[in-house]
Amino acid sequence: MWTAFLFAAIIAGTPLLFATLGELITEKSGNLNLGVEGMMLMGAIMGFSVGIWTGNPIMAMIGALLAGAAGALIFAVLTVSLRANQVVTGLALTIFGTGFASFMGKNFVGKVTPPAIKSFFHAFEIPFLSDIPYLGPILFKHDVFVYFGYLVILIASLYLYKTRRGLNLRAVGENAAAADASGINVTLYKYVHIIIGGALCGLGGAYLSLVTIPVWQEGVTSGRGWIAVALVIFASWNPTKAMLGAFLFGGLDILGFRLQSQGIQVSQYLIDMLPYVATVVVLILSTRNNKKEDRPPQDLGVPYYREER
């Protein structure tokens, strides 16, 4: 019972994991991109359509990655080079991405991904690791996309906290002017990480359209992009916490159904509220503790003008 629940929580959390990590990396560069939902949908439809056209799962994932990156590139041009308001641009990107997915998806409604893709994303056990008591059956009996998620989190943590470039990136997000003064190419850092962030959001969307529901239906993300934005705050801009948060929120998402099917009567409305309550509680707690590492990047949302230094 518990194993099945936690196993399902990982699956429900995986699209959130990619999107949250994407937004986290974007925000580390000091830019707040509220277009997560849009980029996820762009990734979902491109991943799906490339999958249909080529029948190749790797190509499909690359397609999703590029679509998310393309959405993020629009955002980067607008907010980094042209210094447009980040909130407005992000919202516009969400609307754009939603429209883009509906438009592109018109001819795909009801279509199913080819068998090669389905079998590629079939769950399989990782030898030895899946034999670990308790954790093994929960963590290591998934599809390749989920494992890729673990890997990406690991790489991101190492990159952010153990490499020079990661340090530079955090510097750009904390104080772009100081980073610039120390010789870091602020614009380049912002561009690269916004685009990587977008690509990860695209992958998050593609998990929904390629693995969870391999049939095209509009609105597959159903607001998960917004949960991801909340999750970044919940995780206090830390990739490891983001992973735990994503699986926790995934678990909260399905908790209601599990209780209902057990005959335990809890209002579904109450359960639907929990992720948001959790975010608010974490916000209050982290504000009260006021620990340095829990704070958002200081220059988050502030456009950088070199001339105004």
Binding site: S222, I254, F257
Partner: peptide
Amino acid sequence: PAKEKDAATALLD
């Protein structure tokens, strides 16, 4: 779609 699948999985479990 994803949520409905999750609900269904809960029933199957």
